[in-house]
Design a protein around this nucleic acid. Structure first.
Lengths: 205, 205
DNA sequence: AAGGTTATGTGAAGAATTGCACGAGATTTT
DNA sequence: AAAATCTCGTGCAATTCTTCACATAACCTT
């Protein structure tokens, strides 16, 4: 239940959570490591072992209460609150993200949008007004925002990341196809669809 | 150099490729496992071991020829050609993807766009006309498309995936926050930004 | 209430992945 | 041309991750 949780385990918890939320929507009350495993493509033993690192959430013979397990996982992942997120990059992708409803009902809310294009600054994106990237540092610091999503072109990504770091950001979800260089105290997760496509084309043909 | 390559290794190759392309842009001719490792955040020994599974691409004392290694990795990943991709879902995200130039110059080209919304069918998205999702099966089969990107709402994703599978799809990049059920012969990679954000929030606070 | 079934949590075994360290080839320096 | 430096490829060791299998507990049926 402490800090020696392997990162690979942490990475699976959101999958469990998502599958549980889905099961809950179908009206189920209870599930088993078996059933959950089939849903997420992970062995039942693996799931039991992962969960056992945090506590004893199940009941022998019965399985897991879906509502209870959702609650526990949300606490563990700090998904039991709403996180404000800064969106940097108001291009097509930024627009799509700003307008996507799926974030707000899963614990994340975009609270500010930045861009460096004078033509975009001042324009509206979703329910936000695009602000100048020059102000990132002070604005996110003032708002206490600790998470950012980066949807700028690769050529602008490192500079934007540097500004975010100066503003005290703690986590960056990076959509730009470039490896960001940040201090060890800042977490980065990358989304690069082309890398995932290439992972698959290896097995094709 | 055969089929017993661990999947986890295959997953790292696109990272190496991306970093190499970046290094090449800076005008460099040569790199080392050390330098590449710093760029992608992977140990030098790991990189050497990974590459050695496919051949001896480096030279002692000198390192790796960037152009040569790019060429080899592209062959290994089948990224030495252009793959046609079907895009299913013409919402905001689908639009952003269809208009993103980054795919075409990294080996993937969107060749058709589908949606089930009558208001969208017939409209233009990027350089494509949106087609009825009802025709997916025949259209992708006729075109010989084997890769799809799925950007429909979660509630429509499984049906769309089923249609793709019937049409002979081999790989699906799934943006919907739901686990798809497909035959073992079909590969699926998922992109779920919220899962990645939750992976990071575990470590925050 | 006893027997049967289900399904957890976990120690131990097994498998997979990563890191270490060194021989050997290539280049550069003195 | 010898010495020093660099860096690959790789066998082996260390570590990490996954699976197995079973004692235990809860529920269900008769």
């Amino acid at each position: 239940m402490d800090d020696k949780i392997p990162d690979i385990v942490v990475g699976r918890l959101p999958k469990y959570l998502q599958a549980l939320l889905y099961l809950q929507e179908t009206g189920k009350q209870t599930t088993s490591s078996q059933e959950l495993g089939v849903k997420v493509g992970i062995s039942a033993a693996q799931i039991r072992k992962d969960l056992s690192l945090f506590g004893e959430f199940g009941k022998q013979g019965t399985g897991y209460s879906i509502a209870f397990l959702i609650d526990q996982l949300q606490k563990i992942l700090h998904a039991d609150r709403v996180w404000g997120v800064a969106l940097v990059g108001a291009g097509d992708l930024g627009h799509a993200i700003a307008r996507y409803a799926g974030f707000s009902n899963r614990g994340f809310r975009i609270v500010m949008v930045f861009d460096n294009d004078p033509a975009k600054i001042g324009a509206r994106v979703g329910e936000h007004t695009v602000q100048d990237v020059k102000d990132i540092e002070s604005k996110i610091r003032a708002a206490g925002v600790t998470i950012a999503m980066l949807t700028v072109p690769a050529s602008a990504a490192q500079n934007a990341a540097d500004a975010l770091v100066r503003g005290g950001i703690r986590a960056i979800l990076n959509y730009a196809p470039i490896t960001l260089s940040v201090p060890e105290t800042v977490r980065v997760e990358a989304i690069d669809p082309i890398q995932q496509l290439q992972h698959m084309t290896y097995y094709l043909e």
